[in-house]
Amino acid sequence: MRTIAIDMDGVLADVYRQFIDMHFRETGERLNPEQLKGLTEKEAFPYLYTHVNSEGFFKNAPLIPGAKKALENLSAKYRLFIVSAATEFPLSLTEKQAWLNLHFPFISWKQMVFCGSKEIIQTDIMIDDHFKNLDTFSGESYLFTQPHNALTSPGKHKRVHSWAEVENILLHHSYLTKTE
């Protein structure tokens, strides 16, 4: 069975919506994702490190539309691993596990990988929103569109804009039937 490493923040958890909501509560300014295109997360959200180090930030992040259904469907054909560079933010470790348990009860603790660098990950496929994780990956890579990467060419990675698109590629693509 082929394996997939799936990033959490920006791919499963809608941290952009979380940042935008927190920014509004703190400043009264409502940011539009369109105006954030091309900006790094740090440029877009001046209080980024305050937010990600706040209790509840990761535990309360909203789910990206279609993620739960897609992972349920993908888990029938692939071995899934949620891979998150979580050790940079120590508070996030237990919150991320609680969040995954809540939203993806079919993902076991054995399929949750919390790390610093993802360069050691050796699955067949990786889905992530950051080039720093995909560029060191030797398998098939998919860049999940988020404002910070929206204006950048995906290069050697395939760009995906939604979980419906991921499902269409990975569940209905011709190579799936060739390798089963």
Rank of each mutant, 00 (worst) to 15 (best):
L102R: 15
S138C: 05
K96Y: 01
I127R: 02
S117T: 10
E140K: 13
E140G: 04
F144Q: 03
I125Y: 08
V113G: 02
H148W: 06
K96Q: 08
N133L: 09
P105C: 05
G116T: 12
H103K: 04
A98N: 13
V113D: 00
E119H: 12
S117D: 14
G116K: 14
S153D: 15
P147D: 04
P154A: 11
P154E: 06
S153P: 00
L151K: 14
M126L: 14
F144G: 09
F144K: 03
Q111H: 08
K118L: 01
N133D: 12
I120W: 08
M126W: 03
I120H: 13
F106A: 06
Q146I: 03
D128V: 07
N133E: 11
K118S: 04
A98Q: 14
G139Y: 10
E119C: 13
S117I: 00
V113R: 02
E119V: 08
S141F: 08
Q97A: 11
H130S: 15
F144S: 08
E119G: 05
N133F: 14
P154G: 07
L143W: 06
I121E: 01
D135A: 14
L100N: 03
S153K: 06
I120A: 14
I127M: 07
G139S: 12
S108G: 10
F131A: 04
E119D: 14
N101C: 07
T136H: 12
T152M: 10
K110C: 01
D129M: 11
M112Y: 01
P147E: 05
I121C: 01
N101D: 15
E119Q: 13
